[in-house]
Computed example of a mutant assay.
Amino acid sequence: MSEIHERLDMIELKIKDPAFRENRGLGNEVGYYIFDYDPRYELEVRSYISYLRKKINENPNHPFKIAEFDLYEIIISILKEKGYLSKTFEFEEKKGSEYAKKAVNKLLKLGTASNLIVSHIKENTEENSVVFLTGVGKAYPILRSHNVLNNLYEVMDNVPVILFFPGRYSGSELILFGTIHDNNYYRAFPLVE
């Protein structure tokens, strides 16, 4: 069995532990974790998350549910809802990718306390959930992980949050795809070693 499958199998054991869901242990009072992985295993990770979410959520005997939020899908949903998706394509075509990215960031209020992605996650997370944040690679370069984690950390501390990250987590810095340094400090712990 490969290393990625061994690490993925450890997720279920970890999240079923009541101490994990009660945010105890590891000195991590708010329950923020990162599951980093080699980006070449993206499809295996997606498949495992789908399998585990179905297994947990369809069993009425589980004391918690998995709330998965694909960051890319949230961005697309908000752009559609605001009638901004086609405008984004027009901006990119006429003014370039950087201009379109800045316009989307402004619409999503990414640098503010009223961040629309964070609001969506908070409003759609029930008690007794474990939050899975996915779609990090798909959302790049529009969204950087720190825009979600740091703002979410400020408003949601009642459930554990796991960021599935295609890259490396050094324990303090996220390196997307193993090459793009984030240069932000995170108050999160590795989910599994």
Rank of each mutant, 00 (worst) to 15 (best):
R168F: 08
R144K: 11
A19F: 11
S2P: 15
G27C: 12
N124Y: 03
H181G: 12
D38I: 00
I180A: 07
E173D: 09
L143Y: 02
E98M: 09
K102W: 09
E12M: 07
V130W: 02
I75G: 01
L8E: 09
E6H: 14
Y72D: 11
D157T: 14
G111R: 13
L174P: 00
G135N: 03
S50R: 15
G167A: 01
V118E: 05
G178F: 04
H146M: 07
K80C: 00
D182L: 05
E193W: 10
R53W: 08
V159Y: 05
L163T: 02
G31I: 05
I4E: 05
Y37I: 00
E12T: 08
M1V: 13
N151Y: 14
M10E: 10
L13E: 08
N61H: 15
F165H: 02
K54Y: 13
R21Y: 04
S145E: 08
K80V: 03
K55P: 12
H181W: 11
E3A: 10
D38G: 00
G25Y: 10
V136M: 02
T125D: 04
P160R: 02
D9H: 13
Y185M: 09
A103H: 08
V148D: 07
S2I: 07
K106Q: 13
E68I: 03
Y153H: 14
A188K: 06
L163I: 03
E92T: 11
L116N: 04
S86E: 12
N150E: 13
Y140P: 06
E127I: 10
L133Q: 02
S77W: 06
Y186S: 07
I49A: 12
N124A: 04
L133W: 02
G111K: 14
L163D: 03
G111E: 15
V155E: 07
K109A: 10
N61E: 15
Y32D: 07
L143F: 03
E73L: 13
L52H: 11
